[in-house]
Simulated assay, not measured.
Amino acid sequence: MTHTFVETNGVRLHVVQAGPETGPLVVLLHGFPEFWYGWKAQIDTLAEAGFWVWAPDQRGYNLSDKPRNVADYALDTLVSDVIGLIDAADRQKAVVVGHDWGAAVAWWTAVSYPERVDRLVALNVPHPVVMQRFARRDPGQLRRSWYIGFFQVPWLPEKLLSWQKGRLLARVLRSSSEPGTFSDADLEHYQTAWNQPGAVRSMINWYRAAIRDPTSRRSSIRVTVPTLLIWGVMDQFLKRDMAQASIDLCDDGRVVFLPTTHWVQHEQPERVGELIKEEGGEEKGTSSC
């Protein structure tokens, strides 16, 4: 793995790269409260299969820039970061893969710039429009999404999540995953990332921007690029019903359900790596079914 920094869309992003530069580009987008390290089990697998892997710390996380304004974390802005990364790689297209918030960014990148996305792989987050519908109308999802409302409160969420250098966040990861998913060594890496100056504030600002700065209107919300949705069926935060509703908005989509929690790429790392390889097209980027 090579660690580098890339200027894109007015910010400087820390990016971990691996694999041959001549291979098809794969961009791996982490979610909350992770950073590039969340893909550690898939980076080498994809690089060895011939892909050129870029795994950024998205804006606000770990070693990347952390703008102060909530508006700096609007979904349209986050999508522009991804397009800037593809441009920096001197590529027209990339296979875009995302988990959690990274999946929301990946979905909206495919909606907004289908000509720049070769294939889309989303993990355990639905199409953003489906998420909005369920979060507003479905009582079960409303209960599961309670923390989004809490994150709108000024300063208090930052205080709680910063408590004892991220001890509460570490508890959330462990309590919402299968036993042994996150080791003590893993959590040390996460706590180092969370304690970067301004990181917790910026991570929460993603949720604030989702409410305060809605996406600009699109002519169509359909996803026209080939799409794979990987969904851990024991997710405590998101209802399984949203998976098929998301695929219904895809011209060429399929969903694979796995017996995991929300942290699917951690609990079934080999299976997830293989699914991404298959969807992206192994070795030379040829598509496979």
Score class of each variant (00 low, 15 high):
54 W>F: 04
111 V>L: 05
161 L>Y: 07
236 Q>D: 15
31 G>Q: 01
109 T>W: 00
235 D>F: 08
17 Q>S: 10
119 R>G: 08
166 G>H: 04
134 F>I: 01
149 G>K: 12
170 A>E: 09
30 H>T: 04
222 R>T: 05
279 E>P: 01
175 S>H: 15
11 V>N: 03
77 T>H: 04
150 F>R: 07
4 T>E: 09
242 M>E: 07
287 S>W: 09
124 N>L: 07
148 I>H: 10
168 L>S: 08
243 A>F: 11
170 A>G: 15
199 A>Y: 00
49 A>K: 11
202 S>V: 06
38 G>L: 02
4 T>H: 04
235 D>T: 12
289 C>P: 02
215 T>L: 02
17 Q>M: 11
236 Q>K: 15
265 Q>Y: 03
7 E>K: 08
273 G>Q: 07
72 D>N: 05
201 R>S: 07
183 S>V: 12
263 W>I: 08
116 R>A: 08
197 P>K: 06
207 Y>F: 13
110 A>V: 10
81 D>N: 12
51 F>K: 11
177 S>F: 06
194 W>I: 04
264 V>Y: 00
123 L>A: 06
270 E>V: 14
111 V>F: 00
205 N>Q: 08
126 P>H: 02
272 V>C: 09
100 D>G: 08
210 A>R: 10
30 H>G: 03
278 E>Y: 00
9 N>Y: 03
186 D>F: 09
197 P>E: 02
209 A>P: 12
267 E>R: 10
161 L>H: 02
263 W>M: 05
225 V>A: 12
219 S>Y: 09
51 F>S: 11
196 Q>V: 02
152 Q>D: 09
242 M>N: 04
216 S>R: 15
105 V>N: 00
231 W>I: 12
156 L>K: 07
134 F>W: 13
186 D>W: 08
14 H>Y: 08
197 P>I: 04
233 V>W: 11
257 F>K: 06
161 L>A: 07
171 R>A: 13
39 W>L: 05
268 Q>I: 05
145 S>P: 03
33 P>G: 07
195 N>Q: 07
278 E>L: 11
55 A>F: 01
108 W>Y: 11
256 V>R: 08
165 K>V: 01
14 H>Q: 05
247 I>W: 04
32 F>L: 09
216 S>Y: 01
255 V>E: 06
